[in-house]
Nucleic acid binder design. Sequence first.
DNA 1: CTTGACCCTTACCTTACGTGATACCCTATT
DNA 2: AATAGGGTATCACGTAAGGTAAGGGTCAAG
Lengths: 256, 256
Amino acid sequence: MDNYSVKKLSKLAGVSVRTLHLYDKMGLLKPSVRTEARYRLYGEKELLRLQQILFYRELDFPLKEIGAILDDPAFDIVQALEGHKKALLARRERINTLVGTIEKTLVTLKNNTMLQVEDLYEGISPEKVQAWRTEAMAKWGKETVLEAEENLRSFSKEEMDGLKTELNDNITARLTALMHTDPKGPEVQELIARRYQIILRLTGGQIKMEKLEYFRKLGELYVEDNRYTPVNGMPSMELALFIKEATDHYVSEQKK
Amino acid sequence: MDNYSVKKLSKLAGVSVRTLHLYDKMGLLKPSVRTEARYRLYGEKELLRLQQILFYRELDFPLKEIGAILDDPAFDIVQALEGHKKALLARRERINTLVGTIEKTLVTLKNNTMLQVEDLYEGISPEKVQAWRTEAMAKWGKETVLEAEENLRSFSKEEMDGLKTELNDNITARLTALMHTDPKGPEVQELIARRYQIILRLTGGQIKMEKLEYFRKLGELYVEDNRYTPVNGMPSMELALFIKEATDHYVSEQKK
DNA sequence: CTTGACCCTTACCTTACGTGATACCCTATT
DNA sequence: AATAGGGTATCACGTAAGGTAAGGGTCAAG
């Protein structure tokens, strides 16, 4: 009996000596014996009690409550556990909210990164960009260019990269391949439709089916003219203006 | 400028005065002016900074880190947020584990509650229980009764209550109703089969199809004998022995 | 001039220990 | 028997983010 010194018990249970001192002082776990030199000695009963303490501690119960649970035999453990579970679920909910807030914040921050106009023309040299913007403004009007840029900036970098990748890597590649095998087949139609869907997203247009239908036909024309190629590697801005041109064309068609 | 006293600012931002004192002392939010009487006065800029502090505080950032974020313009906020998100997800995982442990513990505790033999005979007066157990032991043997009780105790109260409720409220009621309209119909067969399935669970038997098939036939006999009624309101133990009788009957049938 | 509202600083309390500092105890080896 | 080593004791400070209280100064209105 009373075999365990503080160190032995602490090793056995995986706690620090300091913890045992603390539990002793606060009355949570008293040694069964104190030697005349005031050494603490614990027995099997204390080891068992320590295990129980650690169980509830693992569940994040405060030590005071653990004492209450263990010392009061009338304590309603089930109720305590259920209450504690409720608290934990609330904490989990709060964490979910926090994670949501962080994610939203991250999106906003990444959007803000896009607010640099330069980001719209990544990979293009600044002189070229400047020349190209000037030319585009002369061609379509300053407002048009600014508007298109404004729209593109509302994207997160991630989303835009995803769309551009799909456009360049997947769609155009398959389109090019199919042009040699089945240029009039249904898959070509699908790809062209998808391409315009993406372009519409990038240019801020709502996807309206009539427009989509129109662009599908327009796409066929483009394909016949072999004009689908410029989409490959197009910078974002060029895409925006490319589709604006088509939209204007569409609008003037409707007016007739 | 510098319109806000500690109290005004604290009300405006929803924090305590003590918090403002603390933030001042730790250099997180210094008042823009101190009057000659050492009163703290804050301006709009400080209000704004406080808002930012509170934003990060809401996300459970430690105040020291908030200071670093706000004071170092080169601080990588995105990385900080992503790291923090990871930490939050880890905490959520831990909470999930804890909740799981609690739920398991609750099941165990409820099982232990069932360990009281009295719980097997809820609603029956103790004298009746004693008399009935004695009689049952004489009829089927002491071991049989103890075995049946042992088996029933491994159930959680919840599950057993669920099964008994289904048995008493749903099955027997519908069975009784159907006996007057379509006593040989397929639904009656289904209900009888389900009834024996439940009884088998309660008596610890694995549900083997051959047995089930046998009991279905046996059930028909019972129905014809109008003996299905005793199931209604039967205490758990009686159910266990009721089915034991049938099982023994089945075994002796097989041996022939 | 007083009163009540506001403000200041100092300091102790909270949780569950970690980390010393200082001093005592025990056992084995020299 | 002295000493070295490891074990042990108590005391006390530090942690994060304030709450709470004590004791005293300031300001504007009546």
